[in-house]
Amino acid sequence: MKKKIWIGIGVAALIIIMIGVSAYRTAFAKPLAVEVMEVKQEKISSTLMVPGTLELQEEQNVFPSPELGKVEEILVEVGQQVKKGDVLVRFDDSQLVLEIEQNKISVESGYLRINQLQKQKEHLDSRKKDLSEQIGKKEAEKQLAAEYDQNEMELRLANLDLKQTLLQKEALEERVKDFELISLVEGTVLAVNENATELVTEVQEPLVQVGSLHSMIATGSLSEYDVLKVSNGQKVTIKSDVLPNEEWQGEIIDVASVPQNTGLANPMENQAVQFPIIVQINDGIQLKPGFQLIMEIETEEKEGLVIFSEAVVYEDDKSFVYLVNDGIAHKQEIEIGLTSGERMEVVEGLKAEDTIVLNPSDKVSDGMEVTLE
């Protein structure tokens, strides 16, 4: 019996000690230190994330052409700067070369024939002078009239033939230009493929590729659900995994009115409809054509109450923050509107200049006393 009494006394003492410790902690424990932010009225925009590819805005590819014949010469090299109109590739046409040589002979022959007829006329003039002294001017003209007429007719025909030959020469010179492919853009020679001079290949590679490295675009595609949210002039932030700390600005310059052709044989087959878009990059970009990009398209912008996503706690499909008033944390349900990266619009539940807890830990609870860091 005595033993039981002592056990009871011990238990009661332990309980008293635990209550005392708890009371001490409550009385003397320091409030939990928390990091906070102020709710502000700011501009916020919703964004649409779209994968993209970096491409040259101005680009020209020169391919072999069966109509032009074999490649005679590639006149540029990689890295060379070219202007519009510079000859890039010259093609060989043996038949045209033969026609040009024949025309040269015809032109030379025409000039020789005219020169010969002019000398004949000079000879007639000399004979006419001698005869005029012997038999008189009128009689001399009468005797030589037929020869003068013949010389004049032949000289006129020779001039007509030469004129026609010279016109043929001009036409041949124009045809020569057809066998010279010129640059249509001002830029840099990006590739020269000497092995692409053969005319018959399954996958034809360009002989020469020219493009402007100072003018780049990003291309991508939008689903039928997203395409109605995007229009020309909308701002775009461009990022790349290759340079994670860099970003570039751009804007939408083209949204396709019709979806791109997927090439599926069965048009009745279910397929995701995609609408191509083009983004003009405003800044210089340190990437090469073909690099993969992430495009954040700003689809809507408005003024609203803005907080950081790290302040939000989610429970049972509801969103909460801890609102701090007079050193006490109060759990507050909120309604979220637009989101842009780590920024969120609060549609309901807060007002401007409210103070909320950032990164609330499990130690933060409703009604808890807190101190601001």
Rank of each mutant, 00 (worst) to 15 (best):
K3G: 11
I7M: 15
I9W: 10
V11N: 14
I15F: 15
S22E: 13
A23T: 13
Y24K: 00
Y24P: 07
T26S: 12
F28S: 05
P31F: 00
V34F: 03
E35Q: 09
S46R: 05
T47Y: 14
M49Q: 14
M49P: 09
T53K: 13
T53R: 11
E59R: 07
N61I: 00
N61S: 15
P64H: 01
S65Q: 06
G69T: 02
V71D: 03
V71R: 02
L75Y: 03
G79M: 02
G85W: 02
V87G: 10
L88G: 11
D93T: 00
I100C: 07
Q102G: 14
S106Y: 05
S109A: 14
L112D: 15
N115W: 03
L117N: 08
K119I: 14
Q120E: 15
K121W: 01
H123Q: 11
L131Q: 10
E133C: 03
E133V: 06
Q134S: 15
I135L: 12
G136S: 07
G136E: 10
K138C: 04
K138E: 15
A145M: 05
A145F: 05
Q150I: 04
L155N: 09
K163N: 14
L167D: 15
E198V: 10
E198T: 13
E198M: 05
V200T: 12
V200F: 09
T201M: 09
Q204C: 03
E205H: 08
E205W: 01
H214P: 06
S215Q: 13
I217T: 09
I217M: 14
D226I: 02
K229E: 09
N232P: 10
G233C: 08
Q234H: 04
K235Y: 11
I238A: 06
K239I: 05
D241N: 13
V242Y: 13
P244G: 09
I253T: 15
I253G: 12
G263I: 01
G263E: 09
M268G: 08
N282G: 12
D283R: 10
G284V: 02
L287G: 13
G290Q: 09
T299W: 03
I307S: 01
V321M: 01
N325S: 05
A329N: 06
H330M: 00
H330A: 07
E333T: 01
E333I: 00
E335D: 12
T339E: 08
G341T: 00
L350V: 08
D354H: 04
L358S: 07
N359F: 02
S365V: 02
E369A: 06
T371H: 04
